[in-house]
């Protein structure tokens, strides 16, 4: 059972590695938002409809003209 003297510190080292990965993720801001990613994953498959006019309408300035306002 002498192997325990090596295996246990090794296990702790592994835990330390996992913790370091966790620190890195937290500092990168990956856990700042705990609500949105749950939904984001649902929408991964969806893409905007490729429309020949899509580029046009969004490329041109999508604002109101003054006549629309009044």
């Amino acid at each position: 059972m002498e192997i325990l003297f090596i295996v246990l510190p090794l296990a702790l080292l592994l835990a330390g590695g996992a913790l370091t990965a966790f620190f890195w993720a937290v500092h990168r801001g990956q856990l700042d938002d705990l609500d949105t990613p749950a939904y984001r994953v649902i929408f991964d498959q969806e893409h905007p409809r490729k429309d020949p006019h899509a580029g046009e309408s969004s490329g041109s300035d999508p604002t109101f003209t003054d006549s629309e306002r009044d």
Binding site: Y39, I42, F43, E46, P48, R49, H53, A54, S57, S58
Partner: peptide, 14 residues
């Protein structure tokens, strides 16, 4: 116009 009409389907889905 932006081709984003998938929004309405998603909205119903969620």
């Amino acid at each position: 116009a932006c081709g984003l009409d998938g929004f309405y389907r998603l909205k119903q889905m969620v």
